[in-house]
Design a protein around this nucleic acid. Structure first.
Length: 937
RNA sequence: GCCCGGGUGGCGGAAUGGCAGACGCUGAGGACUUAAAAUCCUCCGGGGAUUUUUCCUCAUGUGGGUUCGACUCCCACCCCGGGCACCA
């Protein structure tokens, strides 16, 4: 009759779904009350006497288990392409399957609407970031609706609205109260031409500004707001255990790596020569030394160099202490003594000027890790010495470009024999390389002694290990680099101990002696959230000359962005140039004061947005804890691997903070995480900048949304990358047409009869009354249902689910003409199964077919079909017969036949008999209904 | 360097210890048609034997191992992709 016209069908059903509010969902009343009464105290005063909110009526579903499925919210820019659509399709299939299986499903969508691109576009096009953003949102929404995703649009949020970001501010104030938010100077990427801070991504070509490619980015110290993620480092690390098995391994691994816990010890090295000076400070000042010199000495006197090491057991092998170029002690160490520089010069390496130049170079290097990682090791001797507290030896103090101020204490002890980097450094600059650990295995007693000797020899007769190359000159054999655990040698009282023991004892002794202690440090740093931008959440803080930093009182929230900013992309924060915004009265004293002109990192917005979906219009709190308690944790979160670290880590952090605030009672917000693969074209991910996108709308116009959906599901398993293929799209399109024509052809007679749940026919009635052809079809249909159900449940093998359905459709075509031997009831049953199985993936087509089959109420009103094992059961099975593991014949037997029956039949088989000829059967392996293997010899 | 993935026909991919290559794409042939499109049917890993039916053999990155039986489990290695990286 008709043709498959996806554009008409899709519009028709989208309208019906909306009219019938099919995807609107509410928290279950009973459960919400249970949660509220049982576990929640904070902020619940009003609730006690109140009736449930009007939208939770008595008719709401009761005791359906909840299911929260969520796709990462998009940043609304550019064009929606099939890469986006794949993500949303996967989520939509899950949502629809769960709905059909009787879950109370929440499936929301919103917009990550703040961010730099809006601001840049606004500068370029002379529009307002809000205009640009809202236009994009409208466009995105239109296309998402066009694909028929089952979102509850009433819950839509946009993070750039004051109704949303006021809660960012509210959270910030709570964190400020608890000391989680604090301000400190920190090193940033600074572009001297833009006069602003750059994000790491804006530093290009190994240290240049993205807008001024001839301008080198500098490291600068400026005051910024931080959130103390490090306070939760241990929790963030330990709770990862809970996610094992339900988050991808690599995401867990990446987060572990990022947090980077390492246990070791801090050790304090005194600066040599200080004691003498403290006795007689006045006399020590060199003529011509700067006036503040003695002052500096004063400060330096009690200063020791604090180093961090995970291998305190190698401390007897330390041949230098190396400081980061921007270590606070570097300046005073160098300035203190001009002649020390000469000492360095004498050692043959540097002039004072060369040294200063070098230091300046090292300091200016961008903060960005890449540059440092690839740079060659460099450094210089400061001319000063430190005392190794374990053996009292003097070791030279160096400055090295590979020592990071940001990690540990910004200073290390260099143990060249047992650390790769130190080894490289020592070889380059001729530091000695004493061996203090030897491999445990090959070590006999005699060898150990010898090793001990050699070690001593190498160390020299207690001589100072200046930056000279005496070790190398002495022609001493260069010891091998050995970085593993072993046995300590040449380590005083600790010689002979296993590394593990030595670490324990030496750390304990350092603590006793007051020159060190055990310490755990993390790679994770606090989260800097200040951005010198306009399009973000204003930081709700005011600076008053009299009262200092004053938080904006809750009642004054939100601090709203000024409507008409001056955006130039250069200079300081745009907000700072707006007097109406900046000038404000101090909330404490009423005097003149200034607002903080920075805005928050947009990762703040996305760290808790999924809670807001539970209660999107609450104007008293970020969300009602009872509602969040009902919906959380997120049962299934779906998004790209690109957010494996930052977004997910910040979200986890936020959850833990909210837990401490009493807003939630779970440890982790996301129970299961799925990271889908990218859609590629020409081997690279689709992106507007590469110009290789297949537009979502274009797709929908050409083939319809359902074809686009099923193609992305069929072409590859969801976790793998998918290479776009126009030919394969045609295949998906053909398949849907094939299904449509099949149903269309048989719909007439099918409409005349009842079937499925309406027919309430018992399994046995079907079987008794069935023809062979009917039984075969029903069997295939229910076998398919079993496998498709499995593929939807645990494994998400949508591609093989679709393949199964294709097979079933092929089988039905193969049984044509169905009029011959297949009653309309059976035809209807089989076609309904096809329709219902397709429903989560091609929802519009499925609704249309469902209607064609004679159903007046929408497909959304029915559940997932019931699998009937009786119908799926095979009557006969073909069993391969193997001789010594090779298939030599096949026998057909009744399902469930015994070993004896199968064996007897097998022996009759010509091929089998031939291979058995003249041999004895030694062993028989029989797997019922599967195979028979005869071991002969 | 360390940590994760992954290697199966011309291509995307099935098969989680039991007939390797389901399903789809491409390609070839055929039917329908005045013709084309659409649709439908058949064939499609390599080598060999049999010249019709079919049979043998090799084959899931490489080499070992476990097992009656291995794409699947174990060990070693090679290659590809991704992440992290002077992290002390």
């Amino acid at each position: 009759m008709g043709d498959y016209k996806p554009q008409e069908i899709e519009a028709k059903w989208q309208k019906r779904w909306e009219e019938n509010r099919v995807f609107e969902t509410e928290a279950d009343v009973a459960d919400v009350e249970e949660v509220a009464s049982g576990r929640w105290q904070a902020g619940r005063e009003e609730k006690g006497s109140q009736d449930p909110p009007s939208h939770i009526e008595g008719g709401a579903p009761r005791k359906k288990p909840k299911y929260y499925v969520l796709e990462m919210l998009p940043y609304p820019s550019g064009t929606l392409h099939m890469g986006h659509m794949r993500n949303y399709t996967i989520g939509d299939v899950v949502a629809r399957v769960k709905r059909m299986r009787g879950f109370n499903v929440i499936h929301p969508m919103g917009w990550d609407a703040f961010g730099l691109p809006a601001e840049n576009a606004a500068i370029k096009n002379r529009t307002h970031p809000r205009t640009w953003t809202n236009n994009n949102i409208a466009e995105f929404q239109r296309v998402l609706r066009r694909f028929g995703f089952s979102y509850d649009w009433r819950r839509e949020i946009s993070t750039c609205e004051p109704e949303y970001y006021r809660w960012n501010q509210w959270f910030f104030l709570r964190m400020l109260e608890r000391g989680i938010a604090y301000k400190k100077k920190s090193r940033v990427n600074w572009c001297p031409k833009c006069c602003t801070v750059l994000a790491n991504e804006q530093v290009v070509n190994g240290g240049f500004c993205w807008r001024h490619e001839d301008t080198r980015v500098e490291a600068r110290e400026i005051e910024q707001w931080f959130l103390k993620t490090t306070a939760y480092a241990d929790q963030l690390l330990n709770d990862l255990q809970e996610m094992e098995g339900s988050w991808p391994d690599r995401v867990i691994a990446m987060q572990r790596n990022w947090i980077g816990k390492s246990t070791g010890a801090k050790v304090w090295f005194e600066i040599a020569g200080e004691e003498k000076k403290t006795q007689d400070p006045g006399l020590e000042d060199e003529p011509g030394a700067p006036a503040q010199s003695s002052q500096r000495r004063e400060a330096e006197r009690n200063q020791r160099i604090e180093i961090f090491t995970t291998r305190i057991d190698t401390i007897y092998g330390a041949s230098a202490v190396i400081l980061a170029p921007n270590h606070p002690l570097v300046g005073s160490l160098l300035a203190a003594r001009a002649e020390d520089a000469e000492a360095g010069q004498k050692s043959g390496h540097y002039t004072a000027e060369g040294r200063d130049k070098k230091l300046a170079e090292m300091k200016v290097t961008s903060v960005k890790g890449e540059d440092i990682a690839t740079a060659e090791k460099d450094g210089f001797f400061t001319g000063r010495y430190a005392i190794n507290p374990f053996n009292g030896e003097k070791v030279p103090i160096w400055v090295g470009n590979f020592v990071l101020m940001e990690y540990g204490t910004g200073a290390i002890m260099a143990v060249p024999a047992h650390d790769e980097r130190d080894n490289e450094f020592a070889r380059k600059f001729g530091l000695s390389i004493p061996v203090v650990v030897v491999p445990a295995k090959e070590r006999t007693n005699a060898e150990a002694k010898e090793e001990e000797h050699r070690g001593r020899g190498d160390t020299g007769a207690g001589g100072s290990r200046v930056g000279g190359a005496d070790a190398a000159q002495a022609g001493a054999p260069v010891p091998q680099l050995f970085t593993e655990y072993g046995i300590s040698v040449n380590s005083g009282a600790y010689s002979g101990l296993k590394s593990e023991e030595a670490i324990e004892r030496m750390a304990a002794d350092a603590e006793k002696g007051g020159f060190g202690k055990k310490e755990t440090i993390y790679r994770l740093r606090d989260w800097g959230i200040s951005r010198q931008r306009y399009w973000g959440t204003p930081i709700p803080v005011i600076y008053c000359e009299k009262d200092g930093m004053v938080p904006v009182p809750d009642r004054d929230l939100p601090v709203v962005l000024p409507a008409n900013p001056k955006l130039t992309g250069e200079g300081q924060s745009p907000l700072a140039t707006d007097p109406e915004f900046v000038n404000v009265k101090c909330p404490k004293c009423g005097g003149a004061a200034r607002r903080d002109a920075d805005t928050m990192d947009t990762f703040v917005d996305s760290s808790w947005y999924f809670y807001r979906y539970c209660d999107p219009h609450n104007d008293k709190m970020p969300f009602d804890p009872a509602k969040a308690g009902y919906w959380f944790p997120i049962d299934q979160y779906i998004g790209g691997i690109t957010h494996a670290i930052l977004h997910l880590l910040y979200s986890r952090f936020w959850c833990k903070v909210m837990r401490d605030l009493g807003l939630v009672n779970h440890k982790e917000p996301i129970a299961r995480l799925f990271t889908q693969g990218m859609v590629q074209k020409g081997g690279v991910a689709m992106s507007k900048s590469r110009g290789n996108v297949v537009g979502a709308e274009e797709m929908a116009q050409k083939y319809g949304a359902d074809t686009g959906r099923i193609y992305t599901l069929f072409a590859a398993p969801p976790e793998k990358d998918l290479e776009w293929s126009e030919e394969s799209i045609e295949g998906a399109w053909r398949f849907l047409n094939r299904v449509y024509r099949l149903v269309d052809k048989h719909a007439g007679p099918a409409r005349e009869v009842a079937s499925g749940p309406e027919a309430s026919l018992e399994v046995n009635e079907w079987r008794v009354a069935s023809t062979e052809k009917e039984r075969t079809l029903l069997r295939k249909a229910h076998q398919t249902l079993r496998r498709v159900t499995q593929d939807f449940e645990g494994r998400w093998h949508f591609n093989s689910a679709i393949a199964q359905i294709m097979e079933l459709v092929n089988a039905i075509y193969g049984a044509e003409p169905l009029e011959d031997g297949v009653r309309p009831e059976v035809r209807k049953e089989v076609l309904e199964l096809v329709t219902l199985m397709l429903a989560p993936m091609t929802p519009h087509l499925a609704e249309e077919l469902w209607e064609m089959l004679g159903h007046e109420s929408g497909l959304w009103t029915v559940g997932w079909p019931e699998f009937k094992a009786e119908l799926a059961k095979e009557d006969e099975v073909e069993i391969p017969v193997q001789i010594n593991g090779k298939v030599r014949g096949r026998v057909t037997v009744a399902a469930g036949a015994s070993q004896e029956e199968v064996l007897e039949k097998a022996k009759e088989d010509a091929g089998v008999a031939m291979h058995l000829n003249g041999k004895t059967v030694r062993k028989v392996i029989f797997v019922k209904d599967k195979m028979l293997n005869l071991v002969v010899g």
